[in-house]
Structures are given as structure tokens and as C-alpha cells.
């Protein structure tokens, strides 16, 4: 097992390197000059040139990449062109807010998805299966940006029950686990949970149905096991697939909440990324995308390890 983990960690290194090259290239390929985006519209060319030199944008791209990578390895992701603040610090505070939102949205989506998917798979073809499947398809299909707006209109504007934006009365800095702050979590959490709910429902439904069709289930029942005990076997067999899907979905939640965070002005990495895109703030863009990609790589690694731990067949493979 230890050898397997070491091997998987070793695989992650070239992946991370590849990701860093892609991130750097894509950011620099996008149109618009990063310096022109942050200086005043008709600032003279010499001012732009001076800033380019100050931020190292006058160097050839491979040189820029090399310098950036060396610094990134030591945890220094540079300084934002727009604000002058350290990118690592910006990402740390934003990532904490995103992880919190993703965690709760994940818990909500995965719980509902697991229950719905389990019931639907267990009762395939019944009305309850059809209801669960409809909910799952709706969850997967609905654009969460639009859903966020609708929820805001209904619960914040019309019913005035929940706040429309922000992270609480004093913002993220004064975050507390009290009602006044947690009310701000409800709408973005629900919005973000809908897609993973749908995907997890569908996956679990299909997996449970597949496991149920195996002969060993009939054998277990024939042996006279209680239905609860049979269910235990089903869960164990369906677990690795469901875990893999949940891990990937959690990765998407961490990286894919840019629209939801913008709609709710939630100060996470998505909001930071949105700001960085509009300002062509290349150091922030590179830093955020790299960290989000690394989250994904890390999550995949953790899921692989967890899968291996609960399913010895994978270790053998």
C-alpha cells in the first residue's frame, strides 16, 4: 500500500509540471496586454514599458516561466499587478472561503444525491426512481448561474428571508459560526450543490442497479441474509465508483464556482479569478489557476488512495 501511495505521489509531480506549463501558456496567449489593463487608459507608452520591466513582462516567455516556476516552488506566487498585494496571501484567504462554501455545498449535494441515487437504484423502474431521475437530470441541466439569480429573486428580493450577497455583516474577516453569518451561506450553498447532487444521484443509481443485478446478491439473499446486510454488501461494492465521482465533483466545486461566487459576491477563488480575468492580472490568474489545478490533482490522489484502501482489487491491478 505504501509503495502504491509513493508511486501515485510520484505520478502527481509531472502532472503538476504539465499543468503549470499549460496554465502559464494559456494565460499569456489570451488577448490584451496585462500592463495596459491596469494603467489608466491613455497613460503614455513609457509608463507601460517601465511597469513591464518592473514585473518582468519584458523578458522572453520561457525566461518568465522559469522564474515564475522557481518562485512558485518556494510558495512565492508573485505580486498582483493591480493591487500590489502578494498573490499567495490573496489566494490563501480566498481559498479558505471557497473551501468552506464547497464543503457545505458538497455535503448537501452528496447527501441528497446519495440518498436519492440509493433509493432510485434500489427501486429501479418505480415512481420513486422516476422522481429521483427527474431531479437528477434537472440538477445536471440547470445552469447554476441562472438558478442563483432565481433563488436571490425569490428568497432575498421577494420573500426577504435570506441575504442576496456577501459573507456576513462584517465580511469574511469577521466570519463567525452564528446565524447572522450562516444565513449568507444558504443561497450560494444550495445553488452550488445542485449539479453534484444530480451527478451523484445518477452515478449511485446506476452503480447500485448494476450491483443489484449481480448474482452474488441473489446468493446472499438465498443464504437468508437480512436485507440490511445485503445492503451493506451493495454499498461496499458501489463505494469506490461513488467515491471517485464525489472526489471529482468536489474538485469541480472548488474550481468551478466562479459564476456562483460572482452572483453572490462570495469572496472566494472564483470571485478572485473573475476580478483577475477582467484586470488581466496575470500573476493572480496564474496563481489561482495553478492552485485550483493542484487541488484537483490532490483530490484525485486522495480518491485513488481511498479507493485502493477500500477495494483491494485495485491494489492488485
Amino acid at each position: 500500500m505504501f509503495g502504491y501511495i509513493l508511486r501515485r505521489v510520484a505520478y502527481a509531480i509531472p502532472i503538476a509540471l504539465g499543468v503549470s506549463i499549460i496554465v502559464f501558456s494559456l494565460v499569456h496567449l489570451s488577448p490584451g496586454d496585462p500592463i495596459n489593463a491596469v494603467i489608466a487608459a491613455d497613460a503614455p507608452a513609457e509608463v507601460a514599458q517601465r511597469l513591464k520591466e518592473a514585473y518582468g513582462f519584458d523578458k522572453p516567455l520561457p525566461v518568465q516561466y522559469g522564474k515564475w516556476l522557481l518562485r512558485a516552488i518556494t510558495g512565492d506566487l508573485g505580486v498582483s499587478i493591480a493591487t500590489g498585494r502578494a498573490v499567495a496571501g490573496e489566494i490563501t484567504s480566498a481559498a479558505a472561503n471557497t473551501i468552506m462554501l464547497a464543503f457545505f455545498a458538497g455535503m448537501l449535494g452528496f447527501s441528497i444525491g446519495a440518498v436519492l441515487g440509493g433509493i432510485a437504484g434500489y427501486n429501479q423502474g418505480s415512481w420513486i426512481d422516476k422522481v429521483a431521475t427527474t431531479m437528477a437530470i434537472t440538477g445536471v441541466s440547470v445552469p447554476h448561474y441562472w438558478l442563483g439569480l432565481v433563488l436571490v429573486i425569490v428568497f432575498a428580493v421577494e420573500l426577504n428571508m435570506l441575504p442576496a450577497m456577501g459573507m456576513g455583516p462584517g465580511g469574511s474577516r469577521d466570519w463567525a459560526w452564528d446565524v447572522a453569518h450562516m444565513r449568507h451561506l444558504v443561497l450560494p450553498m444550495v445553488t452550488l450543490s445542485v449539479i453534484p447532487m444530480g451527478i451523484v444521484t445518477r452515478t449511485i443509481r446506476a452503480t447500485v442497479a448494476e450491483v443489484l443485478s449481480n448474482e452474488f446478491v441473489q446468493a446472499l439473499r438465498a443464504k437468508g441474509l437480512l436485507e440490511r446486510q445485503v445492503l451493506g454488501h451493495i454499498v461496499k461494492n458501489a463505494g469506490p465508483t461513488c467515491l471517485a465521482v464525489m472526489g471529482l465533483q468536489f474538485g469541480y466545486l472548488l474550481g468551478g464556482s466562479i459564476l456562483v461566487e460572482t452572483v453572490f459576491s462570495w469572496p472566494g477563488t472564483g470571485f478572485l479569478l473573475n476580478d483577475a480575468i477582467f484586470r488581466r492580472d496575470i500573476p493572480v490568474l496564474q496563481g489561482v489557476i495553478l492552485i485550483l489545478a493542484m487541488f484537483f490533482v490532490l483530490l484525485n490522489l486522495m480518491v485513488d488512495i481511498a479507493q485502493t484502501a477500500i477495494d483491494p482489487r485495485m491494489r492488485r491491478a
Partner: peptide, 18 residues
Amino acid sequence: LLPIPEPSARTAAALSGQ
């Protein structure tokens, strides 16, 4: 002062009394 770049979010913040 609150930065709310998205116009509909800004409008919703006003309509919800934030």
C-alpha cells in the same frame, strides 16, 4: 463601500435591503 461588480447582484442587494 461594497464592491458588487455584477449588475443583477447589485440590484438584488438593494432590493433585499443589504
